[in-house]
Design a protein around this nucleic acid. Structure first.
Length: 201
DNA sequence: TACCGT
DNA sequence: AACGGT
């Protein structure tokens, strides 16, 4: 594997599991089996490593979502698949990582914000529109407003002031909100399919 | 790996 | 004292 990719992979695993500030450059060098010098040849400083690590991971997520929407059999299945992905993806993430990045790595946080406003809202809006056309989602709802609400819901689960990790399991909160959100969109026909999808596995 | 500055 | 950076 390429040196740079190896570093990004090790860094992502460490940052998400233990927290960005807790993990030192020495830790990453040791885990990647290389010297710090090698890391600093690829990345200017820790801030850049953090930025590139999350940038890389978001790119991978984006690729996954694109593939998912190409393969999906409709908007509702798509939402359910995304829900599964989120569950697996976030089960290993220390929920404190996001507030940590917001506070100490503002450039990296801006990357998240940029993604939210330029990609995520568009993708969710399109999926809701598709579900309407398929007759699974209510036509009277405003797709764009619901997409924005959905993003705010997801963001809120990572805010320790709203859902303290000591009291709440983030994955459970995510799943509860997702279920509630989808029910708000569904037509009778959609609800029928939704129950069918949920009971098949 | 040892070391320095913060 | 610990950690980023050389």
């Amino acid at each position: 594997m390429e040196t740079r990719e190896k570093i990004l992979e090790v860094a992502m695993e460490h940052f998400t599991r233990l927290g960005v500030r807790y993990v030192t450059m020495d830790d990453i060098a040791r885990a990647a089996g290389m010297s710090k010098k090698t890391i600093y040849q690829e990345f200017k400083d820790k801030e850049q490593l953090v930025f590139n690590t999350f940038e890389n991971s978001m790119r991978q997520d984006q690729e996954f979502f694109t593939k998912l929407s190409e393969e999906s059999n409709g908007a509702l299945e798509h939402f359910v698949e995304i829900s599964k992905y989120i569950r697996s993806r976030f089960s290993n993430i220390n929920p404190l990582v996001f507030s940590e990045i917001q506070r100490y790595y503002p450039k990296c946080w801006q990357l998240f914000e940029h993604y939210k406003h330029n990609c995520a809202i568009k993708t969710i809006t399109e999926t809701i529109d598709q579900g309407k056309a398929e007759g699974y989602f209510r036509k009277e709802i405003d797709s764009n407003i619901m997409a924005m609400i959905r993003l705010e819901q997801i963001s809120s689960t990572f805010d320790p002031a709203k859902f303290p990790p000591a009291k709440f399991n983030i994955i459970e909160v995510q799943m509860a909100i997702m279920d509630h959100f989808i029910h708000g969109l569904l037509t009778d026909k959609g609800r029928e399919l939704f129950y069918k999808i949920n009971n098949q596995d």
